[in-house]
Amino acid sequence: MEERTRTDLENLKKPNGSSVVSLLQEVQEKYNYLPEEILREIAKERDIPLIDIYSVATFYKAFSLAPKGKHKIVTCSGTACHVRGSEKVAREISRVLGIEPGYTTKDGLYSLENVNCLGACALAPLVVVDGKYHGNVTPAKALELFKMYTVHEKEEKEEAGCRCATAKELAK
């Protein structure tokens, strides 16, 4: 870990001192979250007060201090989505996964996020699963969509010799 961190930091050093935000964006890109020890290292190496880094890391929504799940589910709650019933959709997904937006399921499979507008308002309500946009979603459609993903996940898991609790529960 120590060794890896160091080389990463070397790579992160830029000639004209890139900003905290862009540093964190690079870390986030690489690890999919912001590991505490990396942030501490950056603070030390670049002589930035740790609290400044921590403030930025918690202020912006693109950063996460906890590891993200394998699949990223994003529900949009822009105005257009809202008037077309996105809240119901989000509540259903939240209920099925058993987590609130901003969290990851215990098995590390799904992360749920709620974004205030994804800019594809003509297709409201919108759900994005692993970067794929699904438009005109209703609570029932969301469940179908989700089943599709979990069944797929279950097959993968069964091949690997273990079972996914969520998939099992849903398959009934």
């Binding site: 709650s77 822009g78 105005t79 257009a80 989505c81 809202h82 205030n116 507008c117 800019g119 594809a120 308002c121 003509a122």
Partner: peptide, 11 residues
């Protein structure tokens, strides 16, 4: 930084 929900012309 088009943040207004419901607007996507800049995009």
């Amino acid at each position: 930084d088009e943040g207004d929900p419901g607007a996507f012309m800049d995009r």
